[in-house]
Amino acid sequence: MKLAKRLVLTTAALATAAAGTLLTTTVGHAAQAQSATAHVDAPATLKVPEGNRLTGVFDARGVQTYLCTDGAWKLLEPAATLSYKRDRAHRPVALHSRGPVWVSTVDGSAVNAAALVSSPKTGTIPELLLKATATRGAGVFADVSYIQRLNTSGGVAPTTACTGTDQVSVPYSATYAFYKPGK
Rank of each mutant, 00 (worst) to 15 (best):
T24N: 05
H90A: 12
T152N: 11
T69E: 11
T160F: 02
Q167V: 09
D166P: 00
V63F: 03
V93H: 03
V170I: 15
A72P: 00
P78R: 11
Q148W: 08
G154D: 08
P78D: 05
A15N: 09
A142I: 06
F178S: 01
V170R: 02
A80Y: 04
V8P: 00
K5T: 05
T175K: 04
H39Q: 10
L95F: 02
Y179M: 05
K85V: 13
R149F: 08
H39Y: 11
D41W: 09
N112C: 06
Y179D: 02
A89C: 11
S109D: 12
D41T: 13
L129M: 15
T133N: 02
G28E: 15
V27L: 15
T159F: 06
T81M: 13
L7E: 13
V117I: 15
C162G: 00
D70T: 10
T160K: 05
L9W: 11
H39F: 06
A157W: 09
S97M: 06
E127N: 10
R88N: 10
L75W: 03
D107S: 08
K85M: 13
A110R: 07
Q64D: 05
D107K: 10
V103I: 12
T65N: 06
A113E: 01
A18E: 04
G20Y: 02
A142S: 14
G20N: 08
Q167K: 05
G20W: 05
V40A: 05
T69R: 09
G182Q: 11
L23C: 09
L82M: 13
T124P: 01
L116Y: 01
K121C: 14
S145W: 00
A33V: 11
R136L: 12
V144M: 10
P100M: 14
A115T: 15
A94N: 04
T159P: 06
L95R: 00
Y66T: 01
Q167N: 04
V140G: 01
A161P: 00
A60Q: 07
V27D: 15
L22D: 08
K180E: 13
P181A: 05
G123H: 09
G154K: 08
S169F: 00
A157G: 11
T21I: 07
T25E: 15
P181M: 00
D59P: 01
L67W: 01
G108Y: 12
G154P: 03
P100R: 11
E127D: 10
C68P: 02
L95I: 15
D143A: 13
V27W: 11
A80K: 01
